[in-house]
C-alpha cells in the first residue's frame, strides 16, 4: 500500500494522543514536561506534512519556530521545577497542591 498524506497525519495524531495521555497519567512533573515535548513533535510532523502537500516551505519555517518555543518551554519549565524541588524536595504533582487546599 502506498504511503499517503493520511498515513502521516494519523501517525501525528497517535503521537499527540500518546503525549496527551502521558501528561494526564504521569505524576512526575519532569516526565509531564517530556510529554508536552512529544505533543510539540507531533504538531511539527503535521507542519511538515502540509508543507509537502502544498509545496510551500513556510511549514518548515514554522517547525523551526516550534523548536525555539520547545527550547524556551523546556528551559523555563525545568528552571521552575528546580526551584520547586529546592523548596519542597519533590517534583511529584500530587504533593504540590498548596494552591488546591
Amino acid at each position: 500500500m502506498e504511503v499517503t498524506m493520511t498515513h502521516y497525519l494519523v501517525l501525528a495524531a497517535l503521537l499527540f494522543l500518546t503525549g496527551m495521555t502521558g501528561f494526564i497519567v504521569r505524576r512526575n512533573a519532569i516526565v509531564m514536561l517530556m510529554c508536552v515535548e512529544l505533543m510539540l513533535a507531533a504538531t511539527n510532523i503535521v507542519f511538515a506534512v502540509f508543507a509537502r502537500a502544498h509545496a510551500d516551505g513556510g511549514g518548515h519555517v514554522f517547525i523551526l519556530m516550534n523548536f525555539a518555543i520547545a527550547a524556551a518551554e523546556a528551559a523555563i519549565g525545568l528552571a521552575i521545577l528546580v526551584e520547586i524541588y529546592r523548596r519542597r524536595r519533590t517534583v511529584n504533582v500530587d504533593d504540590l497542591k498548596a494552591l488546591m487546599e
Binding site: L81, V82, V91
Partner: peptide
C-alpha cells in the same frame, strides 16, 4: 533539549518517584 532534561533529572532525584 533532551540533554537539558537528562541533566535536570540526574541532578534532582533518584530514578523512580514514590507516587508513580
Amino acid at each position: 533539549i533532551m540533554v537539558l532534561f537528562l541533566f535536570v533529572i540526574m541532578m534532582l532525584q533518584g530514578p523512580v518517584l514514590e507516587g508513580e
